[in-house]
Design a binder for these strands. Structure first.
Ligand code: MN
Ligand code: MN
Ligand code: ZN
Ligand code: ZN
Lengths: 149, 149
DNA sequence: TATAGAATGCAACTTTGTTGCAAAATACTT
DNA sequence: AAGTATTTTGCAACAAAGTTGCATTCTATA
């Protein structure tokens, strides 16, 4: 029990730190949504968060996700099925002002989970003359490790 | 006038050929939507097509796009802003039964257009052990050639 | 603790996507 | 060319997703 409280406190401290670092006021919905991301092993859709944070209004969740995106706390993952998934940015992302995610994302066709493959970086490409690159996304569909076993 | 009719006829013949090749019955909505894709230089959202084919019901457009996807006549392009864009598959894609698009897509942050960079192929990557790849998408955001000038 | 400013919840609304079914169009047979 | 089976379409009704304005509540700070 003491142990659990300690964990809870640690998580609480972490979420408050993230919010402070981004100059955001500390509110219970923001902390809750950050906690959800921190304990999730996969990227989450808006709907996933709605289910895990039922006490908060749908609109609040929309606005909170947008705020987190603006501050670079989370990033979006484009998918082929018209659902945006959100995931926490790595420490690098969060601390640096400008967002620069550089890993590949994986969508499992079987379990439906979306994973950040933090260790697989996106290879460089050469664009035709006249094009300037700002962001790059690489998304792979297939079967994930867990589902293969 | 004769010239225009000839162009029209050529486009008509082309759309009918595509439909026949995919064993689809030839209907005016399917021809119209194919014509839109053939004369478009960019990928299109459902909404774009709705505006360009006002005479047809929204539901018909949804179903037609789905049919074209199923037959591999068009492919989707995932975007970070929760809108799916559709584009004609290259000849290779259409003729071969199985879909294997392999080019990078470009989203211009200024004009909003989505372009198939047919000449830029997606580089290979190595996934962690246990993952199997089925499809791969690479989407680049930035400023397109036209907007740079 | 008082107060200005920010965030939230609610209601109302728009947009996007889905489904069932009758009517219309197409492909196919004769 | 006409008739018929099958497919496609439009409409209506609905469900889900996303947006906006505004009054209330909460947070930061003096
Ligand atoms: Mn990620
Ligand atoms: Mn393409
Ligand atoms: Zn899986
Ligand atoms: Zn452009």
């Amino acid at each position: 029990m003491i142990f659990l409280n300690s964990l809870q406190n640690k998580m609480g401290a972490q979420t408050e730190l993230i919010l402070k670092t981004s100059s955001l006021s500390i509110t219970s919905s923001r902390k809750k949504i950050l906690e959800i991301f921190l304990s999730a092993s996969t990227a989450l859709a808006h709907q996933d968060i709605e289910k895990l944070a039922e006490q908060y209004d749908r609109v609040t969740i929309y606005r909170t996700l947008q705020t987190f995106l603006d501050r670079g706390i989370i990033h979006t993952i484009p998918t082929t099925d018209n659902t945006i998934k959100y995931a926490l940015c790595s420490d690098d992302c969060i601390t640096s002002g400008h967002h620069h995610d550089n890993h590949v994302h994986f969508l499992c066709d079987q379990c439906g989970r979306t994973l950040c493959l933090d260790d697989v970086s996106i290879p460089a490409i050469t664009l035709p003359k006249g094009y300037s690159m700002k962001e790059i996304n690489m998304v792979v569909n297939g079967i994930c490790k867990t589902c293969m076993e």
